[in-house]
Amino acid sequence: MIKRELAVFLVVGSLTVLIDFLTYRSLVWTGWMNIDLAKAIGFLTGTLFAYFANRVWTFGHQEHAPGSVWRFVLLYAITLSANVLVNAGCLALLSPLSIAVQVAFLIATGVSAVLNFQGMKLFVFKASVLMEKS
């Protein structure tokens, strides 16, 4: 079961990262906001997609499980903070490199992906929630 969940999570995560990255780069490119705010908006845009895709496809919750939304919001608030902080830290360390933005994005995304999978598996969409509804 965990192998299937992890495989689907990686597909959903890849799509989520694509949404995040395209939103982030578009906002930076247009100059509508500073890089940290653009990173946060990109992350939150991907989050909307990730909630529904992971709920239904990855973890098999066809119906809304009580409390899953607030647990998801709490998890993503934590991982958003980690994502933005890691991104900013990497940018500060890698600023001389021409690919600093891309490398920082990938590192921040990797950190938040690990935190997100563990949090969704053990906290947001935990198996006991399905059993409680049965």
Score class of each variant (00 low, 15 high):
residue 4 R to N: 09
residue 4 R to A: 02
residue 4 R to D: 10
residue 5 E to K: 00
residue 6 L to R: 06
residue 6 L to D: 13
residue 7 A to Q: 11
residue 8 V to P: 05
residue 9 F to M: 02
residue 9 F to T: 01
residue 11 V to Y: 14
residue 12 V to W: 00
residue 14 S to A: 15
residue 14 S to I: 12
residue 15 L to W: 07
residue 15 L to F: 13
residue 16 T to F: 01
residue 17 V to Q: 01
residue 17 V to R: 00
residue 17 V to C: 05
residue 18 L to W: 14
residue 18 L to P: 05
residue 19 I to H: 11
residue 20 D to H: 09
residue 20 D to G: 12
residue 23 T to F: 01
residue 23 T to D: 05
residue 23 T to Y: 11
residue 23 T to P: 00
residue 23 T to I: 09
residue 24 Y to W: 08
residue 25 R to K: 14
residue 25 R to Y: 10
residue 26 S to G: 09
residue 28 V to D: 00
residue 28 V to A: 03
residue 30 T to P: 04
residue 31 G to Q: 02
residue 32 W to G: 10
residue 32 W to L: 15
residue 34 N to V: 12
residue 35 I to V: 06
residue 37 L to N: 08
residue 39 K to Q: 12
residue 40 A to F: 03
residue 41 I to N: 09
residue 42 G to A: 06
residue 44 L to R: 13
residue 44 L to K: 05
residue 44 L to S: 15
residue 45 T to M: 15
residue 46 G to S: 08
residue 48 L to H: 07
residue 49 F to K: 09
residue 49 F to R: 05
residue 50 A to E: 08
residue 50 A to Y: 04
residue 51 Y to C: 12
residue 52 F to Y: 14
residue 52 F to P: 09
residue 52 F to M: 14
residue 54 N to S: 10
residue 55 R to N: 13
residue 56 V to G: 15
residue 57 W to Y: 06
residue 57 W to G: 07
residue 58 T to P: 04
residue 58 T to E: 01
residue 60 G to P: 09
residue 60 G to D: 14
residue 61 H to D: 10
residue 61 H to T: 04
residue 61 H to G: 07
residue 61 H to M: 12
residue 62 Q to F: 06
residue 62 Q to M: 15
residue 63 E to R: 15
residue 63 E to A: 10
residue 66 P to S: 08
residue 67 G to M: 03
residue 67 G to K: 02
residue 67 G to L: 01
residue 67 G to R: 00
residue 69 V to P: 00
residue 72 F to M: 05
residue 73 V to G: 00
residue 73 V to A: 13
residue 76 Y to A: 01
residue 78 I to E: 03
residue 79 T to V: 04
residue 81 S to M: 12
residue 84 V to Y: 07
residue 84 V to F: 08
residue 85 L to M: 11
residue 86 V to L: 06
residue 86 V to F: 10
residue 87 N to T: 06
residue 87 N to G: 04
residue 88 A to F: 12
residue 88 A to G: 06
residue 90 C to K: 05
